[in-house]
């Protein structure tokens, strides 16, 4: 059993997650943080699908959002754990 398995949310439980929004997404939704319970299996793709359903303003951005989990860019196939800090990153424009 790996260390990651130990803290994995039990299969039947919903993972409680905090999602951070910035720039255009924060403006469209009207807030910078969303708290939600994601049913198992809690993956990045499932999270993005649920957010697009719950917040239709986010749906058009679904194809261009990069997920960051605990401040690292990750693929949508990532397994999310309760307490993870998830951020939706649209194409950046710093500089």
């Amino acid at each position: 059993m790996t260390e990651r398995d130990v803290k994995t949310t039990a299969p039947h439980e919903a993972a409680q997650l905090r999602v951070l929004l910035f720039s255009v997404l924060r403006e469209k939704v009207g807030r910078g943080t969303l708290d939600l319970a994601l049913p198992a299996p809690a993956t990045g793709a499932a999270l993005l699908d649920q957010l697009a359903r719950d917040y239709p303003a986010l749906a058009p951005y679904r194809p261009i959002v990069r997920l960051a989990v605990n401040q690292e860019y990750t693929d949508e196939s990532v397994r999310l754990e309760a307490g993870d800090e998830v951020a939706l990153i649209t194409p950046v424009s710093g500089g």
């Binding site: 720039s23 403006e27 261009i64 959002v65 990069r66 690292e72 860019y73 990750t74 649209t90 424009s93």
Partner: peptide
């Protein structure tokens, strides 16, 4: 208007 980059950030 928010400026949007051309592509999402790359994975590591």
């Amino acid at each position: 208007a928010w400026v949007q980059g051309s592509a999402p950030p790359a994975l590591q």
